[in-house]
Design a protein around this nucleic acid. Sequence first.
RNA 1: GCCGAAGUGGCGGAAUUGGUAGACGCGCCAGACUCAAAAUCUGGUGGACCUUGUGUCCGUGAGAGUUCGAUUCUCUCCUUCGGCACCA
Length: 866
Amino acid sequence: MEQRYNPQTIEARWQSFWEENDLFTVTEKPGIPKYYLLEMFPYPSGKIHMGHVRNYTIGDVVARYKRMRGFNVLHPMGWDAFGMPAENAAIANNTHPAKWTYDNIDAMRAQLKQMGFSYDWSRELATCKPEYYRWEQWLFLKMYEKKMAYRKESFVNWCNSCQTVLANEQVEAGMCWRCGRLVRQKKLWQWFFKVTDYAEDLLLYSDRLPGWPEKVITMQKNWIGRSIGAEIRFPLPKSNRTGDTEIPVFTTRQDTVCGATFMVLAPEHPLVLKLSQGTGQEKETAGFVERMALQDRSVRSLESFDKEGVYIGADCINPLTGRKIPIYTANFALMEYGTGAVMSVPAHDQRDFEFARKYGLDIVVVVDPAGEHLDPATMEEAYTGEGIMVNSGEFDGMPNVDALDEIARYLEKNDLGKKTVSFRLRDWGISRQRYWGAPIPMIHCEGCGIVPVPEKDLPVMLPEDVEMLSGGKSPLPSLESFTSTVCPNCGKRAHRETNTMDTFVESSWYFERYCSPACDRGMFDPQAVAYWMPVDQYIGGVEHAILHLLYSRYYTRVLKEMGLVDFKEPFTRLLTQGMVCKETLSCAEHGFLLPDEVQTDGELRRCIKCGNQVTVGRIEKMSKSKKNVVDPNVLLDKYGADTTRLFCLFAAPPERDLEWSEQGVDGGYRFLNRLWRFYVDWVQHVTAVKPFNGSPESLDGAVKELYRKTHQTIAKVTSDIEDRYHFNTAISAIMEMFNRMSGFEPDDPMEDTLMVMRCAMDNMALLLSPIVPHFAEELWQALGNPPSILEMPWPESSATALEKEELLIVIQVNGKLRSRFSVSADIDDETVKEKALADERIQKFINDKPIKKVILVKNKLVNIVV
RNA sequence: GCCGAAGUGGCGGAAUUGGUAGACGCGCCAGACUCAAAAUCUGGUGGACCUUGUGUCCGUGAGAGUUCGAUUCUCUCCUUCGGCACCA
């Protein structure tokens, strides 16, 4: 053991030891319980950031811990390698997306290896490789066969700056999730996956994921957005000449149908233009529809957004009252939800109420609150609560909650509508007008239409000999050698689909691919998947709570439907770690500043460029734009991987945000140094003895205390890791144990004493090994144990060592702590009470007040109520 | 607006089932070592008060409640963060 702790030397040494001995490569071992630990794979952006470091450190602790607990642990790593940044970088640096991506992968792999993570690198995969995406194309063909993948022309969210379509989930408050610019509407032919077929099942199973955070489940449920209601058909008058006879609407408030005084259609609704023909309103209607088509979705969703609409000149009939009601088209009606038509009940829906007031439409009250009468003329807002039916014919007098069912039944009986369920969830649009993605394996033939690429022709290779276009557009449509092909059906000239798949498709099955990454007969080897899947513990950022996790759950259902897997849920347990945050520094003139652009001048901090005072801003998520980032490489150079890992785990429990603190990192480094020096001093004295393994009864004094502390710490660290993943308190416990060890002054230097110390030192190394693995290996070896520590079983705490013969009893008077005393563990309750009452200081508090009650909590506390 | 999470010393955080609030670390203060500094080591460190004690009182965002006893349970409110937001 070196005199000085030198992290760089020992970390490099152990990393190569692990690699040379192939310690992280795993295979299926049917007799041994498996544990699949997965962290969300990174996009190869060039460098790992602190978010990755935290995520992967948490995962590595669990992987190493489970391994020591005897599990056959699968812990893979790979690259989510398709995506737009590669194209942008390629244009900016005049390189190729593939080269940029593979260079980044090499750089990031080296960084991850430096962190000492226990990955089975033999399973590494990159989703941009043909041997990966070929199977995704294969499944696409299967999905197309089963009508799970289909094409339709639809309005899509279009980001003009990224030149691409975005999924609803990729639009955040009307802005592109990636570049933050406004999203517009555009009509394009798109490929879709029929996620909505599984809406019900995905929702149902949300409640069968006990290992997932409640927060994520709630978000998914809200996203799926199931509403129970009715579809009601509103007839069109016989006089209408379009040939259409009715307009179906979806409502959750069929009890209020008699209060429906107008109808609202989405501007894109096919009946809008048709019905307005020849009514004199056609010009105004068409003008409105056109204006709405150009209006950005972002404007529509703004808070200040004004409800706006026009009368289309036609009317329909309220099926229950027989009343003729006007049809409007308005900007708040969505074509994608329900039937694209709304029955408007202004008395009982706030949005309809505002619209009715704005356009002077009738308001009819059909639900009165108990004991009250609403007057449409004086109402100031819609009444949406429960009440008693009025103005509804035979349903009058009925509680509206009962009318919900009764009216639904009435509608069904009279063939006017039916009970139904509507979902907020839309089908997954997977077409991207991008180059750097998996080609959709379809061919467009003038004669035969859409024809799938035959299975034997897979993969449809993404051509790598392309020139990236500076405008950011995909080069594929203009690449003759790619688009030009022959129709597999008729043999005539045809052209390929030039859209590529959303990269969320790749990340929806990579965890299955890891089970047999080299498999060339299918997506994966079914036996390997049967052994490893599902993932026992998945760890990643909460930003993927909806997108990636819902898609993966869906895709797994597709695989099950195809008979490829026999489970529905891919991730048994999910941990979403908090963000890594740090304060921002900024100066009035130069904006955000890096820490080394700031100099400390006494109490003040100044900008080195202009000398202005620096504002210390809020603690925010680390981001390049705010310059509040910490480069993992700098930490590795200065402190090494173990200190970096230690701080990430110690500063906060994993699900919470972590506030970066340079001083905190330093504290971790000092702890490791103290520990190192302690081992340097003690190792020579204990290598000759075996760890203490006898009965604690034969020990006493400080020696016994140390032995007990060792076992208490084993128990505490084990439960903190096993039950809660609270590594911060596990580390605290180890620090406490170390404080005990370093203050250890044995009364006599007997062999027992050395054996107890040896036991403490061995166990400390074992407890530390998932957290600071290189450091622990070094301690382990210095104690004369054979490497590797990660092959050792996790220590067990002994019940007899934990037994206490002395207990501290706390005495309260009226719930306030007044005194305490020690008793032997075998004392009976009555004696404890007597002792408490007899206590001098307690007597002082009791005086001669009568004792009402004495409460005793076994082995802990006595409370005397006076 | 709706849904959810969080609020504890100067700071990060602990208190796992209603039972000693503030573990552990950072920072700060004092001392030791040193010509000196750094590093290291030792001790102290929620606030107020006094009679300096194993002292009294206050103290977990605010206010109420349940309880012998509440950081923990219930209600109301405030603040911060996250998600959703014309979904009929």
